[in-house]
């Protein structure tokens, strides 16, 4: 296929292999402003934790995507929770909380984004329109200045999730830029977004170091059913400064 035909090809004409090169640069009109891809994040701060969960129950939660959860730990699946402050990036400044599950189907790390509350309208519209990210408006309070990072997500005045991450041990930032595939599923369409992350100022800890309280929200109820209320984390990490890029999403056919 000639290179210039690739971007015009219908998704069902694409080969099964994951294309190494992103489709031609595209632009999306969001709130009257042209957002060009890849979208770049130049300064974000993150606290995150991974939790082992029963694979069958996790599979049921993400069944709507048609994807399959990864089972890296003796048959258990992994739920990843993270809160992020975007200070400098193409989608403006905002706070975000991410609920993700590790999935199979890509040679890279696959993360299916199940819920992604944010607190600003521009990124909400951009995230949903460009990639199908399940963004929802929420009140997201964060304390990232203290040693223990804290986040409280409230939707319609009610607590959905509260998470604290205690500091770990400094980890040297690797030179390699990890490539991740972010999967989304909105309105019956499952999509894959190539995503690169470049962290610095990383601290990690294994086993515990987090506090997780689930409140009153459909997603919080789902996570509670997975045994996550007050669960012990497998690992936790904080990142002082994270750079990221998000390419155009492509339709994924699991």
């Amino acid at each position: 296929m000639p290179p210039d035909a690739a971007s015009d090809a219908a998704p069902d004409a694409a080969p099964d292999a994951i294309p190494e090169v992103a489709p031609a640069p595209a632009a999306h009109l969001i709130q009257g402003d042209r957002v060009t891809l890849p979208v770049e994040i130049r300064d974000a701060a993150v606290a995150s934790a991974m939790f082992p969960i029963p694979a069958a129950a996790a599979q049921a939660v993400i069944a709507y995507s048609g994807l399959e959860v990864a089972r890296p730990l003796a048959g258990r699946a992994i739920c990843s929770l993270a809160f992020v402050r975007y200070a400098d990036g193409d989608l403006g400044p905002y706070h975000e909380f991410a609920v993700a599950f590790l999935v199979k189907g890509t040679p890279r790390i696959g993360a299916f984004i199940h819920w992604l509350p944010v607190n600003q309208a521009f990124t909400l519209e951009a995230g949903r329109a460009i990639w199908g990210f399940p963004k929802e408006m929420a009140d997201i309070h964060m304390d990232l200045a203290a040693r223990t990072k804290r986040c409280l997500v409230r939707v319609d005045g009610r607590t959905a999730i509260e998470m604290h991450v205690r500091p770990g041990f400094p980890v040297p930032s690797g030179r390699g830029v990890p490539s991740v595939d972010a999967y989304t599923s909105m309105n019956g369409v499952t999509r894959r977004t190539p995503w690169t992350v470049s962290p610095s100022g990383v601290r990690m800890r294994l086993g515990g170091g987090t506090y997780l309280r689930l409140g009153d929200h459909p997603v919080a109820h789902e996570l509670r059913a997975l045994g996550l209320d007050h669960a012990r984390a497998l690992s936790a990490a904080t990142v002082d400064r994270l750079r990221m890029t998000f390419q155009e999403a492509v339709e994924a056919r699991p």
């Binding site: 402050r85 975007y86 905002y94 706070h95 997201i140 309070h141």
Partner: peptide
């Protein structure tokens, strides 16, 4: 600039 962006991010 960074102070303004962080405050804006926090709503």
């Amino acid at each position: 600039a960074l102070a303004a962006r962080r405050l804006a991010a926090a709503g």
